[in-house]
């Protein structure tokens, strides 16, 4: 049923968005793929067609594998902190604690409205291994904080934590809404049957709120990797020796620090491909199995 009487009005209404997206997203997207087959440095007037050379040299560079590994580690940490934990806490808040829901929601959402540059800077100070408050407290009990920003592995964890500070709250309120959409009768019946809480969580709550859960899962991966750009750029610039870089940051660095436009474009194309596969998997295998509350 169409409630707009004239069809051209619909097209007219979509037109502004369409123009913006064509100019700043579709065309650039295509152009990036095109650039990935060229040898160029962003400035020089000549571009040379090199076929798959950019992709080959990308794959020959050991840095790529380091960065892929970092990306993977980032994803795992982000998922644990920003998907699993808020899921669990949303469940606990909805069905165990019950009271104080609003207040927790308000406070935990707060950081997500603050600039991640602010977050990064504050945590750089708070976690400063020599003069930060955490370091001072730890020193009093005899523990020295490691210089995390130059320790491989640890730097990934700390940058993920900083990003999580911002991302957690949004995911939390979305998951809380998803969890509270589950008819309370179902949970009450399970409680009456003396089903332990962890089983209620894994066997009832997770499947019954999976539509929301998957949305948050995908958003955590896709947006989390982009958000992490900020603490990387602000705190480590990808160092030490690419130990904190990810695919997004590496593509940026290749393009605007090293001026290797072709390789950056090739990496971006790969990232896009990866995200597309992820999205495709979501629609193909998960969407149809999920339980939609209220349907």
């Amino acid at each position: 049923m169409s409630v707009i009487s004239k069809k051209w009005i619909s097209y007219l209404f979509i037109l502004p968005s369409l123009v913006i997206f064509a100019v700043f997203l579709i065309w650039p997207g295509i152009y990036t793929v095109y650039l990935s087959f060229l040898d160029w440095n962003l400035i020089s007037p000549t571009k040379r067609f090199v076929g798959l050379q950019n992709y080959l040299s990308l794959f020959q560079d050991p840095t790529l594998y380091k960065i892929l590994m970092n990306t993977f580690v980032y994803i795992v940490i982000l998922l644990v902190i920003n998907c699993f934990m808020p899921y669990l806490l949303a469940f606990v808040l909805e069905f165990v604690i019950v009271r104080g829901k609003k207040l927790y929601k308000k406070i935990l959402f707060l950081p997500s409205i603050i600039s991640l540059v602010v977050g990064s800077m504050l945590y750089v100070w708070i976690l400063n291994p020599v003069s930060g408050p955490i370091a001072i407290i730890f020193k009093k009990i005899g523990i020295d904080l490691p210089t995390w920003s130059s320790t491989s592995g640890l730097v990934l964890v700390v940058l993920s934590l900083i990003t999580s500070w911002k991302v957690f709250g949004y995911n939390f309120i979305v998951l809380l809404a998803g969890v509270s959409n589950i008819p309370s009768g179902v949970i009450e019946a399970a409680k009456l049957d003396n089903i332990p809480l962890h089983r209620i969580f894994f066997q009832i709550v997770l499947p019954m709120s999976s539509a929301t859960g998957i949305y948050v899962l995908i958003m955590t991966i896709v947006q989390g990797l982009q958000y992490i750009f900020t603490p990387i750029n602000v705190v480590t610039q990808g160092g030490p020796n690419y130990a904190s870089s990810n695919m997004i940051y590496h593509a940026y660095q290749q393009a605007f620090v090293l001026y290797k436009t072709g390789q950056s474009a090739a990496l971006s194309t790969l990232t896009l491909l990866l995200f597309t596969i992820l999205l495709f998997l979501e629609f193909r295998f998960v969407e149809r199995k999920v339980y939609y509350a209220g349907k």
């Binding site: 997203l25 065309w27 997207g29 990036t32 896709v222 940026y252 393009a255 995200f275």
Partner: peptide
């Protein structure tokens, strides 16, 4: 879901 690096150079 399109990462910004895909469009940043153009």
């Amino acid at each position: 879901f399109v990462p910004f690096t895909v469009t940043m150079i153009p």
